[in-house]
């Protein structure tokens, strides 16, 4: 688990990264209007924080690839599976800890209840998996980090628009909704709606399942391109 340990250390080494991973979400949770049952914008905005945090972490894999470090890593008896799985697990663990801290503070501040907190943690961690997988697939498309970052920001803004982050899903035109269904952000918003509607709702579990399917597809794509 050497790669896992170093991926964890590397993920938290930079102060800016540490701040983005923990300070921003914690600052968000104390903004009370974001977390009222009527508004609920904080829940979806936090999803975007996860998405960008995942992308920032997965960029480290791209850095390895672009800088040629990956050649040196693979000179050791390390398989692609070991390298990827340990890196991605480390990133997922960082995002998982962030989510647990965030939801725990939120639950204490806004009296969410254990069931809702558990559902939120599950939803955010599954979305973290989808975000990491999507970022991996995305970074595998590019050789330049600058272009990758710029285009990702544009695409994420579309994903957020079609995924019900800025506009509620119910207000989206039918055709845009159907296009949005191809992105994990849609199912993330949908699962949050499921939590709001009631415990163990069909929509909630269905959304998690689709997010996992999208993650599997993204991981399969991202694990091959320009990595071997």
């Amino acid at each position: 688990m050497t790669i896992f340990r170093f991926a964890l250390m590397r993920g938290l080494r930079k102060k800016s990264m540490f701040a983005a991973l923990f300070a921003v979400p914690l600052a968000m949770i104390f903004i009370r209007p974001l977390w009222t049952p009527e508004n609920g914008a904080g829940f979806v905005f936090y999803g975007m924080v996860i998405l960008f945090a995942a992308f920032s972490l997965v960029r480290l894999i791209m850095t390895d690839r672009v800088s040629g470090t990956i050649v040196r890593i693979f000179a050791a008896p390390v398989t692609t599976f070991q390298y990827l799985s340990q890196n991605l697990l480390a990133y997922w663990l960082i995002l998982g800890i962030q989510t647990v801290v965030m939801v725990a503070v939120g639950a204490m501040l806004y009296e969410w209840g254990i069931e809702m907190a558990a559902q939120l943690i599950l939803c955010y961690t599954v979305f973290a998996v989808a975000s990491i997988a999507l970022s991996l697939a995305w970074t595998s498309l590019f050789r330049s980090k600058v272009i990758s970052d710029a285009v990702f920001s544009i695409v994420v803004s579309f994903m957020a628009l079609l995924g019900g982050i800025f506009i509620p899903l119910s207000m989206l035109p039918d055709i845009l909704r159907k296009i949005g269904m191809l992105f994990p952000t849609y199912w993330f918003s949908n699962s949050l709606l499921g939590i709001r509607d009631g415990a163990a709702s069909r929509e909630y579990w269905l959304s998690l399942l689709i997010m996992l399917l999208l993650s599997a597809a993204s991981l399969l794509y991202g694990s091959k391109r320009r990595l071997e």
Binding site: M181, L206, I210, L213, A217, L220, Y221, S223, K224
Partner: peptide, 19 residues
Amino acid sequence: MAGLFLLLVLLTLMLLRWR
């Protein structure tokens, strides 16, 4: 939803065979 599931399953399996 059945159609969407089918679409995603087929896509995932296709990528699995490609990988």
